[in-house]
Design a protein around this nucleic acid. Sequence first.
DNA 1: ATTTCTTATCGTATATTTGCGATAAATGAT
DNA 2: ATCATTTATCGCAAATATACGATAAGAAAT
Lengths: 107, 107
Amino acid sequence: MKRTTKDIFYKDETEKMAKYAKALAHPTRIKILNYLDSQSCCFTGDIVEIFPLAQSTVSQHLKELKVAGLIQGELKPPKIKYCINQKNWKEAQILFNSFFNKININE
Amino acid sequence: MKRTTKDIFYKDETEKMAKYAKALAHPTRIKILNYLDSQSCCFTGDIVEIFPLAQSTVSQHLKELKVAGLIQGELKPPKIKYCINQKNWKEAQILFNSFFNKININE
DNA sequence: ATTTCTTATCGTATATTTGCGATAAATGAT
DNA sequence: ATCATTTATCGCAAATATACGATAAGAAAT
């Protein structure tokens, strides 16, 4: 019987941090987030253009960021406008801050 | 001809962040780092005991953290004392801080 | 209803990650 | 030289991640 990570107890914070870290664990996704942050919002096509990658590949990276909660998409037919998910972004920021500083610097 | 991430240009910062994020992308490794941080230093055996995982599995996680540069091992035969790698820890801290805050808070 | 545009999803191939038990390696003590 | 202790590494299996091209899905416009 193989054990999986699911059988192990982790604090909620730990699980969340791992989830966000996983989303950030690829240079393409970091670049996408940096781009989104600088543009405030943009369409999938804009993002596809800054990478020498297939549209489907970029779409998959966007999906992962969305599933992790770091971005959100808004329908603007026929396009989709992507933005940083501010609430979760803030949460990730606080998690990483506390982790590295061991001081909770938020309010 | 398959394209790989290696053919794409990323800023040095981006690559480094992805590398650190990858190391943090597993709850076990986050827990190890939290433990190391609280104990300042400890032996492999101490870490093995806090997880219901095989010794070889924990050793592998430690190796990943070492390769990423977040921890370092010091020979204390027959044991090995692991500590946070302060220099790289600081670097990661700064990278994540700038990333989330878009302000470079270090001096 | 058909066409156009944009983006997501499917199917597939390959590479990497995660876990285990078994074994090797390194050192100190007998 | 042998043994005990501790930790790393090897070999394997299963699960995930990463990339692609091809196709589907959705909405607006004709």
